[in-house]
Design a protein around this nucleic acid. Structure first.
Lengths: 181, 181
DNA sequence: GCATGTGAATAGGTTCACAGCC
DNA sequence: GGCTGTGAACCTATTCACATGC
C-alpha cells in the first residue's frame, strides 16, 4: 500500500505519512509502497502493543463496570487483573472471574501482580489519593476518568478522559460555525 | 489573576496564555491581570457554553447508562432529552424522568425537540447508520463512543472517545521511556 | 516507471522582549 | 512598578520536490 493510500485512510497527506514513518525507520520499498503486514508488526513493537499490559480498575461504579465489560480491552492486550472499590457492599463480589477487592489492598496487589496501568474510575475527591498510592506502589501509567487534574511525577504518563470537555469542544465548533475540523 | 498564575494552573506558559486569549480579544488590564469573573463570562460565550444544549443518547447499554447518570452533564448545560435503543426489552423503560424510545423514532424526536448533539453509544456495526440518520434529521454534532471512524459532512463536528487508543498512548509513552509528556 | 526517503522551502506556532497602559 | 498585548525572533511541523532505489 502506498503512502497515498495510507493517507486517505487517516485524516492526513502522503508526505505526512512518509515523514512520520521515517522518524522510526524506513519501512517501505521504493516503487512498491509499504507492506501492511510488516508495518503492523513494526509499529506495534514501537507503540509497545506487542505485549500484554497488566491493568487494575479502581472504582466499581457505572463507569468501571462499563469499562470492564468492554470486550476490546482484553482483545487489545489489556488484562484487567483486579478491581478495587471502597464500598463494603461490593467487596468480594465477582465480575466474571475477577473479584472486587477493598481499596486498602491496592498497593499489595499492584506490587504482587506487577501491574502496569491503573484505570481511575473513582470520584474526583479521592482520585489524587489513589493516584499517589498507585504511583508509590510502582504503577507506570494512569488512565484517569475523574474530572480533576491529578498530579504525578513527570515520569508517569497520565491520560485524561474528560467527556464534558469533549462535549464542550463540540459546542465550540458548532458555535464558531466553521468547518468540522 | 496574572497570565503567570493562569499558566501555572494549566500546563503552559504565561506568554502562551496571553497569545491565546488575544486571539479572541483583549480581556486583561495592564498592571493588574485578568478578572476571573470577566474571563469566565467571555470565554463561556466564545466556547458556546452560555446556553443549554439539547442532547440525545443513542444506545442504552452500559456506556449509555454510565453517561446518563453522570451528574456533570446536566450541571454543565447538556440536557439529555431522550434515549434510544433498539432492544424491545428496553423500550418504554424510564431512566429518571426520561423514557427509552425505539430507535425508529430517532428522526422524529430530533426534529421535534430541535436536538443539537447526539451521543453515539451503540455497537460499531450500526454507528454509521445512526449517524447518517441523525445528521439527516438536523443534528449539529456527534460524540462518538463506537470504535469506528464515522463519516459525516465536513460541517458536522465529531468527537471520538476511544479508550483503547488512550490506553495505547500510555503504552507508547511508557515503552518509549521518555518523560510523561 | 513508480513510490520511498529526505533535504529545502514554507507555514504555523511558541517564546522573547518591550512599548504601552494601569 | 507590574502586567498586558503584540511585533520580531525563533523553533517546530508540514509541504514540496526530487534524487535514489526497487
Amino acid at each position: 500500500m502506498s503512502s497515498e493510500q495510507l493517507a486517505s485512510h487517516g485524516h492526513t497527506t502522503a508526505a505526512q505519512v512518509r515523514k512520520d514513518l521515517s522518524h522510526f525507520g524506513s519501512f517501505g520499498k521504493r516503487g512498491l509502497g509499504y507492506s501492511i503486514e510488516e508495518l503492523s508488526v513494526r509499529l506495534r513493537a514501537i507503540l509497545g502493543l506487542d505485549r500484554v499490559w497488566q491493568v487494575v480498575l479502581v472504582g466499581a461504579g457505572r463507569i468501571g463496570s462499563a469499562l470492564f465489560e468492554y470486550p476490546d480491552f482484553k482483545m487489545r492486550g489489556y488484562d484487567c487483573v483486579a478491581i478495587f472499590d471502597s464500598d463494603p457492599e461490593k467487596i468480594g463480589v465477582q465480575w466474571g472471574t475477577t473479584t472486587i477487592h477493598s481499596s486498602e489492598r491496592l498497593e499489595a496487589v499492584i506490587e504482587q501482580l506487577d501491574v502496569d496501568l491503573v484505570i481511575l474510575a473513582v470520584p474526583a475527591s479521592v482520585a489524587q489519593e489513589i493516584a499517589d498510592r498507585a504511583v508509590e506502589a510502582g504503577v507506570r501509567g494512569i488512565l484517569n476518568f475523574a474530572p480533576v487534574q491529578i498530579k504525578v511525577p513527570d515520569s508517569i504518563p497520565v491520560e485524561d478522559v474528560n467527556l464534558v470537555m469533549q462535549l464542550e469542544a463540540l459546542s465550540f465548533k458548532i458555535t464558531r460555525g466553521g468547518a468540522g475540523e
